[in-house]
Structures are given as structure tokens and as C-alpha cells.
Design a protein around this nucleic acid. Sequence first.
DNA 1: CGGAGTGTTCGATGAAAACCATACACTCCC
DNA 2: GGGAGTGTATGGTTTTCATCGAACACTCCG
Lengths: 107, 107
Amino acid sequence: MAAPRHRAAPDHTHPDDVAVETALAALADPVRLTLVRELASSGEWSRSCGSFDVPVGKAALSHHFAVLRAAGLVEQRDEGPRRVNRLRREEFDARFPGLLALVLREG
Amino acid sequence: MAAPRHRAAPDHTHPDDVAVETALAALADPVRLTLVRELASSGEWSRSCGSFDVPVGKAALSHHFAVLRAAGLVEQRDEGPRRVNRLRREEFDARFPGLLALVLREG
DNA sequence: CGGAGTGTTCGATGAAAACCATACACTCCC
DNA sequence: GGGAGTGTATGGTTTTCATCGAACACTCCG
């Protein structure tokens, strides 16, 4: 058996399994764009979900992170009581070359 | 006075005046993606609006072209009874380098 | 144990977007 | 002039998406 898991691990999607439409739609939202940008200018695994300055409640925020995971943009890991994030720079850029750079270049 | 214009010219938006979110949202739709791709593999000004193989009615199609114009992706010109299209490759690529190539590389 | 902190899930709501059918406008050609 | 072809505008329906409030699950710490 596997080690007992006390909390459901978030299901990730690898960028390779993501359709272009999905990636574009994920990045087309202003809130998610902020998350990605702030995440890009922070160290990996340094930001918990609640540490972002976006004008939405917890529920909506949780949903946005689910969308980002499904688009292969963000990886999450449980660290104690909080869930920390990492931008999947390399993997995502390998699948969609230049796209991340494009949205990071402005803002 | 200017020469009499019998039909309203479509209002275009230059890619330089387009926000990233707008460009991404425009390309995130499957129908519009098809239009852009088919347009990319055709000569400039060679395709009229009705010449595309998409599963939507005339009204919806007209709307999609309006979105593409607003995103700086397509330029239109009236040619007799029909409205012909051109993909704004260079201008759009100057504003969003690599984005067009990205969506054209697949499909 | 019990409370504080963090994040997800559920149900409902409101706004935005896609779509259709119809009606209209314009051009071409007989 | 009148009909066929092409595209737009309008009005209304349906779907999708972002959002919230409240309830729940889990971790940490006193």
C-alpha cells in the first residue's frame, strides 16, 4: 500500500496533454494572469494560494488554481496546512514555446 | 466630401491597441481558431467570410469575424458584394511575437 | 482536545458569450 | 426593376463561466 494520504492530492495535467485552446483560455482571464505573473516573479514553492493579491474570495481563487493546474501552468504541493505553488516554466514552454514569455513580458 | 460609401466599412483595431487578454480570448475559441488557420493557409484577400467550413450560422460567423477584427487578427475589405479577409500576420506578430506561430503550428 | 489558519466543495446567482432565426442592406446581373 | 448572393443587425434563447456564501476537511499549535 501507499503511504496514507491525509488530504487529497490535487490532480495535475502535464502541459503536453493540454490543448492550445485550454492554455489560451486559462491565460485569458485577468485574475489568473495576475496569479501567473506574480508566481513568475517569486521563488518556486514560495507562495501559498492565499498569498496572492487578487480581488476574489477563497472559493473563486481555489477554482482559478484548478483551471491553472488543468492547463499545465501550475503545480501544487501540500506543505503543512497550506498549499504551495510553482509555475511550470520549462514544461509549459516546451509545449507552448514563447507563450509564457509573451504574457510575462507585459504587466 | 469623401466618395459616397454605400456600405459601412468595418472598424478595425490595430494589434498595437489590443490587450493580451483580448488576443488570447479571441484565439481561445475553436471556431475562430479554425478561421485563423484556414485564413493562414490561403492567399491574402482570397477568402470571403462565407467561404469557411465552420459549423455555425451566418449571424454567429459575422460575430466571430467582428471579434477577430477587434483583436487585430483580421483585416477586411469590401469587394463587390462580398467581404474578403486577410490575416494580419506581420502586424500581429510584431505585437505578440510567436503567438500566431504557436496556434498555427498545430491543427 | 479545541481553536485558528488554510483551502476545497457545494449550491445558487449574475454576467458574459455563443448561437439561431428573422429581418434588413448592399452588390451584382439578368 | 427585380431576384440571387452575401453579409450585418436585432432580439431572444441557451450555455458557459466567474463569483459568492456557507459548510466541510485538514494541519498546526496552545
